[in-house]
Design a binder for these strands. Structure first.
Lengths: 207, 207
DNA sequence: CCTTATACTGAACGCACCGTACGATAAAGG
DNA sequence: CCTTTATCGTACGGTGCGTTCAGTATAAGG
C-alpha cells in the first residue's frame, strides 16, 4: 500500500531536494567532523534548510542517520551474489558487509546509529528492523536450508551461528581492536563451518 | 611504580568517599534512568559532590563510566575457572561475560561506554585497554596453547576465533535482537570448535 | 481567481547541560 | 604558622535542544 499512483495529495508536495540535502548533509558532517559535528542545527545549516523542516520529518538525530544510511549505502549491499556453494554465499554476505563498513560511509553511520540506539529504544528498534534483520534473515535462510539438506548438523543453533558470522564485523567496527581485512569474511566462514578442531580432515568441497 | 607505601603526599589527601560516591551515583543513575539521566551535573548532585570535583578527576562522562565499570563489576569477572578442558575453559570465560552483562550493571555500563567511545577516541582506547583486551588475551592464550599442542588446526586465525566467541555476546547486548541466555556460551564454543558441518562425527571428549 | 491544504522559512524563546573560573574552606605535612 | 593539595559553592558564557509562530510558497479543487 501507499500513495503510489493514487490521487496526488492535496497541499504542497514535500520537497525531495530538502530531503536529500538533509541526508547528504548528515553524512557529510559525520565523515568530515565526526559524531560531535552532527547536530540538528549543523545539519539544517549545511543542508540550507530550516531547522523546523528537519524536525518536521525526523524526530531525532538518530532517525536522520538511519535514513542517511539507507540513502548512502542502500545499493552497495543489494545483491551480494555468491558462487552458489554454502561457504561462498555466506562469505559473499559477510564480505559485502566488511567492504561497506570499510569503504563507504556506512561504517561511521552504523557506528553512530548503534551509539544513538543505546539512548533511544526507538532508534534501536528501527536499526534492527531496517538494517540488521534483513541481512540476518538472508544468512539464516542459507543456514536453515543447509540444515534441512543435511549439510549442517541438525542441532545447529542458527541465530547463534549468524552471530558468529556477523558479530565479529560489527565488533571490529565499534571497538576498532582489529582491522576489517579482506580475508576476514572467508576466514569467519571457514572456521565456523569446518570448526577449529584438528585431526579430522577437511570434507573437501562437498558443500 | 605507584605511591604504595611511599611517603604520604603533601597536601590534603583525595577523598575516597567522594570517589566512590561519584562512581556509585553514575551507576545508579544509569540503571534507573537510562543513559539520558547520566549527566555530569546529575552525577555531582546525586553524589553530593561539587561539580568541580568531578571534573578534576574525570575529564568526560565516558571516563566516569569507565571507572564505574571497574568499580561495579571488577570482581564478578575475576576468575572464571573452567573445568580444565579447552571447551570448558572457553565456555567459562564467555559464560562469565554473559552473566555479567545480564545480571549486573556491567551490561548497561559497557553499552553506554561503547556508545561514548564512538565520539571519543580516548574512551575507545581506554575501553579496549582496560576491559576488552584483558579478556581477549585470556581467551587467546587458551587457543594459542591448543594450537601449539595440536588440538586445534595450525592455520587457526586466533583473533578471529576470539571474536567469534565474544562478539556475539557484545552484539546481543548492543542490538538486543536476542536474549543473553545461559546456554549461549557453550553453544558458541561447541559450534566453533566442532564446526557446523554434518557427517563427521564428534571427536567425543578428546580435548 | 479564490479557497483550501500542506510544506518550507526565519526568527525567537526557555531550557538543560557543558566546561571553566573564582574565592573560600578543609585536611594533611614541614 | 606556612605550604600544599582537595573540596566546596556559586556563577558565568556558550551551545545545542526542541518548540512556537507568523509569514510565504506551491500544489489541487471549486
Amino acid at each position: 500500500m501507499g500513495e503510489t499512483g493514487g490521487p496526488r495529495a492535496r497541499g504542497r508536495p514535500r520537497s525531495e531536494r530538502a530531503r536529500a540535502a538533509v541526508l547528504d548533509a548528515a553524512t557529510g558532517l559525520l565523515v568530515s567532523g565526526g559524531v560531535q559535528a552532527v547536530t540538528m542545527e549543523a545539519i539544517a545549516a549545511r543542508a540550507r534548510v530550516s531547522k523546523s523542516t528537519v524536525y518536521k520529518w525526523w524526530p531525532t538525530r538518530g532517525h536522520v542517520m538511519l535514513d542517511s544510511l539507507a540513502h548512502a549505502a542502500g545499493d552497495a549491499l543489494a545483491a551480494p551474489a555468491g558462487d552458489g556453494s554454502l561457504a561462498g554465499d555466506l562469505a559473499a554476505e559477510v564480505g559485502a558487509l566488511v567492504r561497506a563498513f570499510r569503504d563507504t560511509a556506512a561504517g561511521p553511520l552504523v557506528a553512530d546509529i548503534v551509539a544513538a540506539a543505546q539512548a533511544d529504544p526507538d532508534v534501536r528498534a528501527a536499526l534492527d528492523e531496517r538494517w540488521v534483520r534483513p541481512r540476518r534473515a538472508a544468512c539464516a535462510r542459507l543456514l536453515d536450508d543447509a540444515v534441512a539438506r543435511g549439510v549442517l548438523r541438525p542441532d545447529t543453533d542458527v541465530p547463534a551461528a549468524v552471530d558468529q558470522l556477523f558479530a565479529p564485523v560489527y565488533h571490529r567496527l565499534l571497538f576498532g581492536h582489529a582491522a576489517l581485512a579482506d580475508g576476514l569474511a572467508p576466514t569467519l566462514v571457514r572456521q565456523l563451518l569446518d570448526g577449529l578442531g584438528a585431526g579430522r580432515g577437511r570434507p573437501d568441497e562437498d558443500r
